[in-house]
Nucleic acid binder design. Structure first.
Lengths: 224, 224
DNA sequence: ATTGCAATAGGGGATTCACCTATTAACATT
DNA sequence: AATGTTAATAGGTGAATCCCCTATTGCAAT
């Protein structure tokens, strides 16, 4: 496509703690005439250092880094260069991450399982100022954002009513339906309805997913 | 080093579901005159197919593959080619994996975080018939193998059998009993027994507690 | 008044849990 | 060679939970 341009190739920064993955990405990128790997980093510290000293057209960040939480890194990078788009690379299929990444200011999210073409497509889309996420992910995110335009500032957990939130917290503590009912002096049936409504509001399909979501949410509240 | 040899380069099979990682590894290996990437696979099924049809001097396996547990793959590969050494590549720092890999017949374990030199060293060491593991790991493993304090060192998760561990990981991903059974081609009953045994070994009382424990454990593994 | 939603709870069928037993194969021990 | 151990498989059964409905009450906003 639009690669015939005489302009200099776009300078890309790669941040990943796996040398082999960096090599693979660099190989792919440097093979394109309009793209170029300008620098590599294997830690968050190194990445911030580079970003503060040089200008890049795009940063390709792995979210799981040894020294820092990937989301924190996105925020730091964006604080330094708000105009530089950030594309996040991850091995996790997780919806939770995609949401957080976009909220932290990332402009895209792609899985390591993807092949070269999709990678290049994502890179070019983000370079063009657009957002890139996978189909399933975008469907879900759009659903969450559009279905409830009113109260969606922040995590979907805010959409829970007080009682639902109370139940949600107990679930996150590993407490079962029966025990929750006892503890809140409710019928098991009522707790079941709350669970169903919570699942609905958080767009979760199964009971196990609900427990996982709740556990993660509770844990994320404790340390931060 | 010993690369002046006139013999044909050693044929290596790469199994990894991340295209970029494969490219990186291939780049590294093909740059060495005494080594050569003979084939690549991105699933366990494909790998077994290749191994059954061709001879390789070494297999480089990623333990986390989409279609099959990595430990099972090691066993399958070794059943087909007992003489072919297997070097396992993983992104996980954990001792638990190294132990299991060696017990399953793997001849080495190296992390994706390592750089090219260490990779080549590991490959050559395994090709030479020796075992390769990191320093910390070998220390810990020797301790476990020699000392009889095997009861309780580190997390109780290592008390789980391979199959139990597999189920445990799926639980931690928020996957329900039925779906686990389907995915592993087992009866629901079998999965239930595994869950019960896991609960026993980890001293957990209810199903919800099990999910919580598993979610936390999995999370602690991949976002360092 | 009417609409909307939170909170409560039940019915009923499908599924899972929790506690049993049982078989087979692989290994270790004797 | 006989025995014991353990992992992996799976069935039976009753209780609990899940998941899909409906239904009532109360309160707040329209």
């Amino acid at each position: 496509m639009a690669t015939k341009n005489k302009t200099a190739p776009k300078r890309i920064l790669i941040v990943d703690d796996h040398p082999m993955m960096r090599t693979g990405l660099a190989q792919l990128i440097d093979n394109e005439p309009d793209l170029k790997v300008a620098a590599e980093a294997d830690t968050a510290g190194q990445a911030i250092n580079l970003v503060s000293k040089q200008k890049f057209d795009l940063a390709l960040l792995d979210i799981s880094l040894p020294d820092k939480n990937g989301l924190e890194l996105i925020k730091d990078v964006r604080a330094l260069r708000p105009e530089m788009p950030v594309l996040v690379v991850s091995m996790h299929d997780e919806m939770i991450y995609a949401e957080r990444v976009l909220r932290a200011g990332g402009r895209g999210y792609i899985m390591k399982q993807e092949g070269g073409e999709k990678f290049l497509h994502a890179i070019r889309q983000v370079l063009a100022g657009q957002v890139f996420v996978s189909e399933k992910m975008s469907a879900r995110i759009l659903e969450v954002f559009s279905g409830r335009q009113s109260e969606n500032s922040g995590s979907p957990v805010r959409k829970l009513s007080d009682r639902e939130f109370e139940v949600f917290q107990l679930i996150g503590q590993g407490i079962g339906t029966r025990a929750i009912a006892d503890q809140l002096h409710l019928s098991v049936k009522t707790v079941e309805v709350h669970r169903a409504n919570i699942k609905e509001k958080l767009v979760l399909k199964t009971a196990t997913e609900l427990v996982r979501y709740a556990v993660r949410w509770i844990d994320s509240q404790d340390r931060s």
